[in-house]
Computed example of a mutant assay.
Amino acid sequence: MHEENLDGALAAAQDGDEAGFAALFHTLQPAVRRYLWVMVGNAVDDVAQETWLQAVRDLPRFRGDSVAFRIWLFRIARNRGVDYLRRVGRRLERPDDEALQERASVHDTVQEVFDGLDLAWALRVLASLPRHQAEALMLRVVAGLDVPQTAQVLGKRPGAVRLATMRGLRTLARHPEVLARQAARRPRPPSARLAGEPSWRTGEVTR
């Protein structure tokens, strides 16, 4: 759903329109679940439900447009995820707070790493990252938030978000499974083809 349509759904939901809230839910729930899956694993459904229950309860007090709503919703999701991790005795990792200039588009870099790969596999690989790196990447790529917006959700400074994002990207780029899949997708030179395999350019068969 385009952002202007999401604004309309938000306004309707705040007026008590169930169809408006349903539009918000169906548009944002997939991203909420993917983010929470990386954060809390198999507890994703319970934590997502807690997130939306709080959103329903607090929506009349929310003020802002659909972009602000997206930030607000993911902040709720993160808070509920942190609560869950505390209940089960797990701790969030915290990145060093040092500045790092963002050298490339996060979406483009992740797209390059995961281009053509299935979502379930990509999420599993992301979940193997340190948690602060996985959260930053999920909010940037899946939720579509920029650095300042992601910083608002995570309660960190933009420099820490950039650092976690770039470290996560470097880790992904070196991940053995990512490297293996990238290598498998590269076209082989003619000399590397097996005998009897047709050339994709000429249709000729190597001898």
Score class of each variant (00 low, 15 high):
187 P>M: 05
194 L>D: 15
174 R>Q: 09
159 G>E: 11
102 E>M: 12
128 S>G: 13
72 W>Y: 12
184 A>E: 10
171 T>M: 06
165 T>L: 07
108 D>G: 11
52 W>R: 02
72 W>V: 10
167 R>E: 09
113 V>Y: 05
127 A>R: 10
14 Q>M: 15
6 L>R: 13
6 L>N: 06
109 T>A: 03
67 V>H: 12
29 Q>K: 08
54 Q>P: 07
150 T>Q: 04
7 D>L: 14
171 T>D: 07
41 G>C: 04
41 G>A: 04
198 P>E: 11
85 L>D: 04
123 L>D: 00
148 P>W: 05
50 E>A: 12
116 G>N: 06
49 Q>F: 04
116 G>P: 03
5 N>S: 15
175 H>M: 01
149 Q>W: 00
131 R>A: 01
54 Q>V: 06
84 Y>H: 06
60 P>H: 15
127 A>F: 06
89 G>C: 08
111 Q>G: 07
10 L>M: 12
91 R>D: 14
21 F>S: 04
174 R>C: 02
150 T>A: 08
75 R>N: 08
146 D>L: 01
13 A>D: 03
74 F>Q: 03
136 A>L: 02
152 Q>C: 04
15 D>S: 15
87 R>H: 06
168 G>L: 10
116 G>E: 04
130 P>A: 05
10 L>P: 14
73 L>I: 06
37 W>P: 01
136 A>E: 01
127 A>Q: 14
40 V>P: 11
81 G>N: 10
190 P>C: 01
206 T>N: 14
141 V>E: 05
141 V>A: 02
166 M>C: 10
71 I>H: 04
155 G>C: 08
190 P>K: 00
189 P>Q: 15
129 L>W: 03
195 A>P: 12
92 L>F: 07
15 D>T: 14
98 E>A: 14
148 P>I: 00
64 G>D: 08
161 V>Y: 09
175 H>T: 04
176 P>R: 10
93 E>L: 02
4 E>T: 11
10 L>G: 10
59 L>V: 12
73 L>N: 08
127 A>T: 05
69 F>V: 10
62 F>R: 06
149 Q>N: 02
31 A>M: 07
50 E>P: 05
122 A>D: 03
29 Q>G: 01
119 L>A: 03
136 A>D: 03
186 R>N: 08
39 M>Y: 12
4 E>Y: 07
13 A>Q: 04
8 G>F: 07
165 T>P: 09
121 W>T: 15
